[in-house]
Design a protein around this nucleic acid. Structure first.
Length: 894
RNA sequence: GCGAAGGUGGCGGAAUUGGCAGACGCGCUGGCCUUAGGAGCCAGUGCCCUCGCGGCGUGCGGGUUCGAGUCCCGCCCUUCGCACCA
């Protein structure tokens, strides 16, 4: 059968099969069309993903296409997915992240880039430890099991990495260098120890960083943390607050992620002002509103403020002590409640307002936080809502010192709420009458002159608490010696190994007999090791550097290689890491830059946050979340109660995850990948539906049938297309082909609108099919179109593309084929259809030559010549005529 | 409360630079094929009507423009982040 008759048959494949094929073919054709029935056909004219996917699973790795040539970066592309914590298994929602990355990497490999796309495991940490405890396993065992399972899942998915560079943060080869990082920071004063009140999670039995307390509860387990005083290690990230803020400007990151980091750093400009207390003590406050100082009528200290003891007069002591004790007991969740009544007690002392001389009672109250600013405030009730509420609750004086511009003066007695707006200073001694835009500057100058204040900046960001009292993490490489004090473990003695003990449940290194006993590296006497491990965010704060030197036993990373390969060109991951991980990674990069290891300051040039995959979840009022199979007819299979349904991001706890193996077994990995990319814009949340996946499956079948039908044509190598010999339809198809090449190239390199890229491939497939069904298609064009179609879809559906490519006669992996180039000649058009608007309404379409389309005068003539247009103009006069070359013609009539 | 993102057919979404709204897919309707259909193929599918060379239409109300999903002003709703940060 010749190519042309095959082409025509393509439009009616069932006829084709009935006419000329054996029953066996028909059977397999039906199997192919209904993936549910399974079975292996001997001859595969039908699309059988199970067969072809297994055929190609190992070739890509063997081909070396995913092994970066790190020594010679050349035209490099460093792609990185946020490495996962190896949980039990990956669902299709996790898969989205990796499918995007795999497709983008395959595209860049085909484009000829030297692609570095490594993978590793964020293996230390509480989740692994807790999961292992539940199963009575050692966390190492649990972690290793999960890693090997996840790698098997990646293989089935067709997701490839440069596995020679695999790292796991729980391996001594890796955490040795995490400890090295700690020591470097310590040596340069960026790691320090202090006794601090910390959030302790009673369930997780560990200290949490401020950042891990979300909404007043433990981010991991939801328990309410209790305050505790412990000696803890901190990283001095606040030293970098300004640079972390400024560095955001030039990054190609989603705006909302930048904003979140900005808010987290929380830079506020203002002033520090010193207030004298009668007893000779001084209270220093931070304020963003120095211009309101004449309105400060009392002072408030945080209950934990160090001066409280000394300022408390004997008659107030009992009350103050009991308030402080209550505040210390109160959990974060209680203190964070914003809508509760203001509480506080008077210390008995008075401070003097340095500008007005007014006497100001000093109170303590828990609405002032010890961790922000100086832990003390001047209270200006007229112009700060919190101070206003406090003043009204305790009958303290209110003094108005600002008149908002363009508004009448306010009387303190009439106030029902504070007036925070900027304005003209009133009742402010020598500065009375200063307008809003000068108020801050003049007040600060005035304070400096009097020697009682200066401009200052405060940050919401706190130093990074890294100590954890748990087993499964990198031990802190510090020794305490009675004679030498705090002694860092010498670099050559690293790693400080996690003791190899049979795992017994929740514990820290302090619970392991003998672990702490050691010799002082300095004097050789007996000493004790630090028994804490590091926060896992330390592990992940530098892993992107390790990938360039993954097997290097002599250093954490080779600085030359790092400088050649980083910053990461494209970093893809979930928005849940928008603040902490990304901020810490940026901090460590800047610190290593300052220490001379790195030439660059920002680790991730471009960041892309993929959206989550949602799926229907069912909830029974009695039994909680139930699996879809327990939700027959919308009723609970256990109790028959009506179920609530809603869409949620996939999670085990909501029992709404889809296991990729179910989809891959039934439809193949390519269908899963295609659907994942097609169902919506990669940066938005999307809904997984069974119907949707069938659409992807149908498309791949159509594409497969089309290409298979054209194989004889492609193999006969009919030669290059001669543009001049194409007829109208041929030119149209070739135009479409090259527009699609351009479209895909732009999407992969630019905005990553992979859903529209897939849509473009669907359109192209349909147009090729239609063209092939014509009586006499140009075989050279058919060959060009089908070959390129296969190349274009290769990053998305690699198995199918590889199979078809080889059937076309390709010998090397499709990854080694150059990505198709755009032929500008194919994109030229001879004729174009332009809309004509009359009074803003679409009234006609005009077919004009390309040359006329670019000439406004010709367009005007053509429009006025058009019969349709003339009909609409009858009896009216043309007021205005606008011809936009190549776009449209707009006519205004009266 | 503050900040950000979003609101387009029955559904997911497209329209990338102010220029033909609804690409592509799902679903639905009709037809073909079939012993059968939770398979496949073909066609149709924004809404309304008086069925036309018609009217309306991108959360709501205004505005700019020859022309607005897109820009401006004012609201409403949804989601996310922060939230006593002085």
């Amino acid at each position: 059968m010749g190519p042309i008759s095959r082409l025509r048959n393509r439009a009616h494949p069932t006829h084709l099969l009935r006419d000329g094929r054996s029953d066996g073919h028909e059977q397999s054709a039906r199997r192919g069309a209904d993936p549910g029935r399974g079975g292996v056909a001997a001859v595969s004219e039908v699309y059988e993903p199970r067969v072809i996917e297994e055929r190609w699973r190992n070739v890509w790795r063997a081909s070396g296409a995913f092994s970066a040539d790190v020594e010679r970066p050349g035209k490099k592309f460093y792609y990185l997915n946020m490495f996962p914590y190896p949980s039990g298994y990956l669902h299709v929602g996790h898969g989205r992240n990796y499918v995007i990355g795999d497709s983008v990497s395959r595209f860049h490999i085909m484009r000829g880039y030297n692609v570095l796309n490594p993978m590793g495991w964020d293996a230390f940490g509480l989740p692994a430890e807790n999961a292992a405890i539940e199963r009575g396993m050692h966390p190492r065992e649990w972690t290793m099991k999960n890693i090997s399972h996840a790698k098997e899942q990646f293989r089935a998915w067709g997701i490839e990495y440069d596995w020679d560079r695999e790292v796991a943060t729980c391996e001594p080869d890796y955490y040795r260098w995490t400890q090295w990082l700690f020591l470097r920071l310590y040596q340069h004063g960026l790691a320090y120890k202090k006794r601090a009140s910390v959030n302790y999670c009673p369930d997780c039995e560990t200290v949490l960083a401020n950042e891990q307390v979300v909404g007043g509860v433990c981010e991991r387990c939801g328990a309410a943390p209790v305050p505790r005083n412990l000696d803890q290690w901190f990283f001095r990230i606040t030293d970098y607050a300004d640079r972390l803020l400024e560095g955001l400007a030039d990054l190609r990151w989603p705006e909302h992620v930048k904003k979140m980091q900005e808010n987290w750093i929380g830079r506020s400009e203002g002033a520090e002002i010193t207030f004298e207390v009668g007893s000779g003590h001084e209270i220093v406050v931070f304020t963003t509103r120095p211009d309101t100082i004449w309105g400060a009528t009392f002072m408030v200290l945080a209950p934990e403020h160090p001066l409280v003891d000394e300022l408390t007069t004997p008659d107030r002591r009992e009350e103050v002590e009991s308030y402080r004790a209550a505040a210390a007991r109160a959990s974060e969740i209680e203190r964070a409640a914003t809508d509760r009544e203001k509480t506080g007690v008077f210390t008995g002392s008075y401070a003097r307002n340095p500008v007005s001389g007014a006497e100001m009672p000093v109170w303590i109250a828990d609405y002032v936080l010890t961790t922000y600013g100086t832990g003390a405030i001047m209270a200006v009730p007229a112009h700060d809502q919190r101070d206003f509420e406090f003043a009204r609750a305790f009958g303290l004086p209110v003094r108005v010192v600002i008149r908002p511009e363009g508004e009448p003066e306010i009387s303190a007695d009439d106030l029902t709420e504070a007036v925070p707006a900027l304005g003209v200073m009133v009742d402010s001694g020598p500065l009375t009458g200063t307008p809003a835009h000068m108020a801050m500057g003049h007040t600060i100058a005035h304070l400096e002159e009097k020697g009682v204040g200066r401009a200052a900046v405060a940050y919401r960001l706190r130093d990074w608490l890294i100590s954890r009292q748990r087993y499964w993490g990198a031990p802190i490489p510090i020794v305490y010696c009675d004679r030498c004090g705090t002694v860092p473990v010498p670099e050559e003695d690293l790693p400080v190994l996690l003791p190899d003990v049979a795992y017994i449940g929740k514990m820290g290194l302090a619970d392991i007999p003998g672990y702490a006993d050691t010799d002082c590296p300095s004097c050789g006497g007996s000493a004790r090791r630090d028994t804490d491990t590091m926060d896992t965010f330390v592990d992940s704060s530098w892993y992107f550097l390790r990938f360039v030197s993954a097997r290097d036993g002599s250093q954490a990373f080779d600085p030359d290689r790092a400088n050649a390969w980083l910053p990461v060109d494209l970093y893809v991951g979930g928005v849940e890491h928008a603040i902490l991980h990304l901020l810490y990674a940026r901090f460590v990069t800047k610190a290593l830059h300052d220490l001379g290891y790195l030439a660059f300051e920002e680790p991730f040039e471009r960041l892309f946050s993929q959206g989550m995959v949602c799926h229907t979840a069912y909830r029974c009022p009695q039994h909680g979340w139930v699996y879809p199979k327990e939700a027959e007819g919308g009723r609970c299979s256990q109790c028959g109660a009506e179920l609530e349904t809603a869409y949620f991001s996939m999670s085990k706890s909501k029992r709404n995850v889809i296991d990729p193996s179910e989809i891959i077994d039934r439809y193949g990995a390519d269908t899963e990948r295609l659907y994942t990319l097609f169902m919506g814009p990669p940066d938005r949340d999307i809904e997984w539906t069974e119907e949707g996946i069938r659409g992807a499956w149908r498309f791949l079948n159509r594409l497969w049938q089309l290409v298979v039908a054209q194989l004889p044509c492609v193999r006969s190598a009919p030669g290059p297309v001669v543009q001049a010999e194409l007829d109208t339809e041929g030119r149209a198809l070739r135009h479409k082909l090259h527009a699609t090449i351009r479209k895909l190239t732009e999407e992969f390199e630019g905005r990553l609108g992979l859903n529209t890229a897939v849509a473009a491939l669907m359109e192209l497939t349909s147009e090729i099919s239609e063209y092939c069904a014509r009586p006499e298609p140009d075989l050279r064009l058919v060959a060009e179109a089908t070959r390129n179609l296969v190349l274009l879809i290769a990053p998305v559906t690699p198995f199918l593309a590889e199979e078809l490519w080889h059937r076309m006669g390709g010998s090397e992996t499709v990854l080694r084929c150059p990505w198709p180039g755009v032929d500008p000649e194919a994109l030229e058009v001879s004729e174009i259809e332009l809309p004509v608007q009359i009074n803003g309404k679409l009234r006609a379409r005009l077919r004009v030559s390309a040359s006329a389309a670019s000439d406004p005068a010709a367009l005007e003539r053509a429009a006025l010549d058009d019969a349709n247009v003339r009909g609409h103009l009858e009896g009216k006069s043309v007021v205005k005529l606008i011809a936009v070359p190549g776009k449209m013609i707009s006519i205004v009539v009266k």
